[in-house]
């Protein structure tokens, strides 16, 4: 193989890696404009059925810690720190819901208690095992958003 060809190959695989990376938006590259994130973080639609599980899972969304949600009335102990999410899909668009889940502080203000689930805008002294990580993955966010849009009254 000639030197020139090697360089072309390297460049090609770099470009491939680059485009694969661009499909999932890194937390710091997400732009919240007018309380909206317009496009899917992964370029793929979310799965509402999986999103429902992620929403309830204490190790993932644990959204029930703060929100009542009648659709999950089979689960015990819904918190009351945030508003009930019944009908939330009627009140907000998917683009707005995506922004709320990604970084609620960009929508509700710095003072909100609601954690940002896909942001590096976090508190100090993050525990070693969570350092540099978001609470949810990009696909988790899309799944939860897909689920939220199904909540209508």
């Amino acid at each position: 193989m000639t030197k020139g060809l090697k360089i072309i190959f390297a460049a090609a695989s770099f470009a491939l890696a680059g485009s694969a990376f661009a499909e999932t938006l890194a937390p710091d590259d997400v732009e919240i404009v007018d309380m909206e994130v317009t496009a899917s973080l992964t370029g793929k639609p979310g799965d509402a059925t999986i999103g429902r599980e992620t929403f309830a899972d204490r190790k993932k969304g644990n959204c029930l810690a703060c929100h009542v949600n009648a659709d999950l009335s089979d689960q015990l102990f819904h918190g009351e720190v945030g508003p009930p999410l019944d009908g939330v899909g009627d009140r907000w668009t998917a683009q707005e819901l995506r922004a709320i889940v990604i970084d609620s502080k960009e929508v509700f203000g710095e003072q909100t208690i609601m954690p940002g689930f896909y942001t590096m805008n976090v508190g100090i002294n993050v525990a070693e095992k969570h350092k540099g990580q978001t609470i949810l993955s990009a696909q988790d966010v899309e799944d939860v958003v897909a689920y939220l849009t199904t909540l209508s009254e």
């Binding site: 208690i113 976090v122 508190g123 100090i124 002294n125 993050v126 525990a127 969570h130 609470i135």
Partner: peptide, 8 residues
């Protein structure tokens, strides 16, 4: 002061 990944 807010701490941790949950930012509380």
């Amino acid at each position: 002061t807010r701490t941790g990944q949950l930012n509380l």
